[in-house]
Amino acid sequence: MRLSLIGLGATGSHIARQLSQSSFDELCLHDEVPDTQLKVTKSVKAIARDGLTVTGSDSPSADGADVVVLACPAGSHASMAKTALDAGSHVISLSDDPGEVQSLFGLGDLALRQNRTLTVGAGFAPGLSCILASFVAGRLDHVDVINTYKTGTAGPACARQHHHALKNRGSEWIEGNWVMRSGGSGRDLAWFPDPIGAKDCYRAALADPYVLQRSFPDAARITARMAATRRDRLTSRLPMLRPPHQDGGPGAIRVEVRGRVGGSVKTIIAGAMDHPSVAAAAVAAEVAGMVGAGQAPPGAGGLSAWPDPKAMLTKLRRRGVRVALYRGVLDSDSIGEVV
C-alpha cells in the first residue's frame, strides 16, 4: 500500500517521521522546496522500519497512491483532493482554512461515488479538537453548545494562516444559522491545560465550526476562538512584520461542550497541550493508518463524525498526545463535569 505525503513543513515532516514505522509499503514524499524534500526523505529513510520504501517525488502528483495526505499550505487542498479522488485515492487534508474546508466538503459526493474517504481537518484544530468534542459529547444525551479555543501554531504556513484568520470574519453557528462575526472581536478568557494557562481568545476565520456543525447539526451554538495578544490584534491587518517562527509551539486546545444529561444541564471541558505540529502529525498519521486499513467511513467528513473517539484518543495517547478534562470546583467528585 502506497501513501503520498504532500508538504514537508513543520507538520508534514513530523507526519513523515510518524509514518516511518507504519504498515504502509511505500512512502512517497513531496515538497515544493527541493532541499527540504531531500533532507526529510533522507532523515525518514534513516529511521524507517524494514520493508518500508521511502522515496522523494519531484511533483505533487498522487498517481498510484492509495492514501494521499495533504499537509501543504492551505489554498490548494480542494483541487489536489479532487485530482486524488478522481484517481481513486483516499485523501486526508490538514487544511484549517474555512473556505477551503467548505470546498472539501463539496467533494463529498465524488468521494462517495468513488467509495473513498475524504478526511477534512485531520490536524490540531480542526482535528484533535473534533475528536475531543466527539469524546465529550458521548457523555451527554444532547449537545446544546460547543465552544472551541486554540493557542499556538505549527510551522510558518500555519502562522500565516493564523495571522490571516484574525483579520477576517469567522462564522458561528447560532440557532440554525451561520452568523458572520468580525475577527478579533468577542474576547473570552479561556483556561488551557497547564502549563499554558489563561489566554485571551478572540473570534477569527476558523474552520472548526464548519466541521463540527456537520456532526452536531442539532446544536444551538457552535463557536471557535483563538488566542491572540494585543500586538497580534493591532497588527493583524498589516502584512506579517517579521518572519514567523519555525515552530509556533507549545500550544493547546480547549473544547467546551454544554448539553443535557437526563434533566440536568452539564458543561464538560476537555483540552490538550502539545506542540501543534507534533499533535497534528500524530492525528494525521493515525488517521492515515486507519484509512489505509479501511476503518474509515467513505465520503467527506471531519474527525468528529468518526465512530469511537475513545479508541482514537487511546491510539493518540500511545503516540504521546495526552488529553485532560477540567475538574470543576463545584462538583469535585464528578471529574470533568461542571454542573
Binding site: A311, L313, T314, R317, R322, V323, A324, L325, Y326, R327
Partner: peptide, 16 residues
C-alpha cells in the same frame, strides 16, 4: 481562592 479543581489527565483506563 478555589483550592481544588483544575485539569486532570485522562487515563488510558478511562478511554477503554
Amino acid at each position: 481562592p478555589p483550592q481544588s479543581g483544575g485539569w486532570r489527565e485522562v487515563s488510558e483506563a478511562e478511554l477503554s
